[in-house]
Design a protein around this nucleic acid. Sequence first.
DNA 1: ACCGCGGCATAACCCCTGCTTATCGACAGG
DNA 2: CCTGTCGATAAGCAGGGGTTATGCCGCGGT
Lengths: 320, 320
Amino acid sequence: MDVLQLRYLVAVVDAGSLSRAAEVLRISQPALSQRMNQLERELGVQLLDRGPRGVRPTRAGTDFYRDAHRLVRQFDELAASAAAEHPVRGLVAVGLPSGAAVHLAAPLFGWAREHVPGVRLELFESMSGYVDELFDHGRTDLAIRYVDPLDPAARAVAAGTGRAGEALLYDEELLLVGDPPEPTRDPDRVTLAELAAIPVVAPGTRSSLRQQLERAMRREERTLRVVADVESLSTMLRIARSGGACAVVPASTAADSAADGLAVRRTDPALRRTAVLRTAATTSAPHDAVAAVRSGVTTLTRELARSGRWPGIELREDPS
Amino acid sequence: MDVLQLRYLVAVVDAGSLSRAAEVLRISQPALSQRMNQLERELGVQLLDRGPRGVRPTRAGTDFYRDAHRLVRQFDELAASAAAEHPVRGLVAVGLPSGAAVHLAAPLFGWAREHVPGVRLELFESMSGYVDELFDHGRTDLAIRYVDPLDPAARAVAAGTGRAGEALLYDEELLLVGDPPEPTRDPDRVTLAELAAIPVVAPGTRSSLRQQLERAMRREERTLRVVADVESLSTMLRIARSGGACAVVPASTAADSAADGLAVRRTDPALRRTAVLRTAATTSAPHDAVAAVRSGVTTLTRELARSGRWPGIELREDPS
DNA sequence: ACCGCGGCATAACCCCTGCTTATCGACAGG
DNA sequence: CCTGTCGATAAGCAGGGGTTATGCCGCGGT
């Protein structure tokens, strides 16, 4: 028997139905069904009456519910009080480039409120170039940085052999969205040669995405045909949707807009980038607070990616 | 956080050392070390001071210990009271052939005392033929039966397609122990032709082992040269050890005696048997008590086999 | 002073458990 | 009678908690 089973039972009795309780608990109905059956089997007592309109606790179930409820509460109190023993406090500055901020910012604040209420977060969301700059000037304690796997200088980091303070987070591909004036030979792929002929809207030159794009084109002795420099990914998408130009955006952004009926093409050769979480070596923020937030970022990234709430990215394992 | 971690912490503080606590908890020291580190990480508090002579709780650890101790106790009380709600009681008769009884009898009594204190066990340990007979006459509620995988009638059971009430437990091989008068061509294998020339001691004709042996020999148009009919496996081994004759015994028995320097040979073709757990369809014992003991037998068999305390057997999966 | 040893941490691996999706059976209501 | 809702079952996958093997450190014995 496990405290989790007690939580589940409490939820079931409260909800009056396995299905609804499963929803509340954010797990599937069969999982809950199994767990409840297991609990009853372990105890050797029937706790629930399964009716066609839901479940109701039996006599034994009601008694058990009371105790379980109380125990779960005490359990949580213990955890809370232990955590309160040595509160993590401080002001942690985090730099997030737009693509990451879209998916990470809100969950990160939520996570912080829940897990480290004593920590105040200061979020700098802007184009990756500025984010890097802020970090290099010691203005942020943590920052996500994009790295081109082809860039030799960044190779070490992407390979996981970089210096401490840089942990791999995820990879993602850069995709072309919108319909080009001429159809591409492969409807799912656009070569860089073809790309050179397509009018695109791109972020400013301080963005790592822009730089990576330009570098890739230069490598093929082509140039990018930029018809508009814009600041935000959403603006890029809006323009692409209007048909005025195509846009090259990270896969996670493209995944959101694919549902809108926008055509999406991979590039050939594929352009990818690696997201790295940097931790400042010297910082004014309390060490433990920074560490906590860092682990929050990696944990959240994993959770979001796995649960499908951050589509288009591929996790890179690098526990640190 | 989990109640198990709380139990572990309590044990650690009580023992004053991870190693010793691990021993008490019957887990390995690294496992405990990991769990404690995880607990501290989750709580964000250091609970233990690691010294070279063991560990001592920190200030926070001491407080935490008290609460954890209390919670664990309440937790167990809840489980106990819920189980007491609907106590399993009754008299369950179990038939075990000698080979199985050697390894299973004592653990089974221990398990029953712990998990179903209201159940009284009646154990019939004897040669497999009698065990079968007792079961067929309704004198036992559960019984282990040996099945020859080559016997067509038993084929269905061994294949897992038998009727309900018969669950696969394990397979084991029959081995020749002791040194035959003439060395065999293959020192690790004895053909049935060679076996016919070897004086062996065998259990009585009511034993399934004996019957299986005779059947196998007859199939090759040979006869077994039995120089002594004995009742117990241990007597057979004693005679084999004295050098008077060889003995054919199940692998689990042979494994015990291999350490005594007795030569062990597989037969060629290999003789194997399958152990099946039978459950009486109609019985006077309470249904739930029988079910509990049945699950105890399967669980124990698995545990013993996996932990190496029942060597020589190969588990068959057949959850039921 | 050295070496040995008790004790905790780390690494690499494995299996079991608990979750998932997919599907079914059963009962109530239109 | 059909349909929608709820719970149970099946089969597959992932992660956590366990294992063994090994490393590192500080103490004590001779």
